[in-house]
Write a protein that binds this DNA or RNA. Sequence first.
DNA 1: GGGAATGAAAC
DNA 2: GTTTCATTCCC
Length: 332
Amino acid sequence: MSSIASFTQQIPYQVEHEQYIQYPAPNYYPQPQTDTTFSNQYYYNTGVHTGYAAFVGYDTSASSSPESYHSVDTPPSTPPSSDHALNPSIELPRRVSRRGPNHIPRPRNAFMIFRSELCASGKISKKVEGDNRHISITAAAIWKAMPDHEKQNYQAAAEVEKIKHRQLYPDYRFTPTIRTTKPLKRKVNRNSAKDKERSRQVAQFIIAGKIGDELEEAVRNLDEGSDDGIQFIPSPNPISPASHLTSQRHTEVRGWVPHDGLPETVNPQSVLRQSPLPSTQFPPNYAPCLPTGWGNHCDPSCTVGIPRSRSRTPGRVRVELYEDVVAAGKLR
DNA sequence: GGGAATGAAAC
DNA sequence: GTTTCATTCCC
């Protein structure tokens, strides 16, 4: 599986295995206090010294007992007074749950850990994307394209986090409250299909190994419409993949097929060459291949982009792993 | 279907 | 000052 290794080594979000073994980082979960020095407390980003409400906000100076962790939302009876400078090794969480200093957050799942790492890595600078909604979209696109064996690292990290959480708070039970009011829908900026497509394109850049200035330049070109002569227009009517395809192991990418060619007549390699995705994204032993029946599922209405220079109708290209296609006897 | 992280932005 | 958004996955 050296091909997969070479593939993943290009991916900047990959973290060395050792880091997963050590995950979560020391002091991520502050130990329950045994005195009132609040040595493991954190500052809230507003400057309010509350402690990391959930994992951090344990306060034995208060009368709360372990079995009440999940339901006690009252602040500690003694105001925290220590300084983070006393514990310089402790990471400062950026927020404290609004549910109160004694609220215990849930352990993160694999995707959440990945997303957190992606943000913390600084790979996505403010110039690339500063909106967390779109960072989420980018993270999701990278996540979906991530090889299973690499996801397993994050799944293992999530399992460790869950175990640590259970050790710290054995009586914790996730008790979601059913809200009685529907969330107020807000009119937000940058919420069009074009904006979301941009976020997915940023993901493709990152998957392709672009980082730092190179990534910023690629995104800048994308925003200026000079990336491969492609500019993005909103998809008026996105289609869902056919059900028999969604169950398959695949990587979905955006591609551009010739305007005058039926999808089933298109050479996948040709499609990839026309696509904005660098061919280096695909490991040597993996050849893109259109699945049988692709033509029946290529809906012209699934328009995500259009090249400026030539008359080509954009479409979606579903790329399967070569070995999967061979195994399924679908190679043509 | 809430909530885990994130923080700008809409309330 | 408070809550929504965008995502995946666990409970």
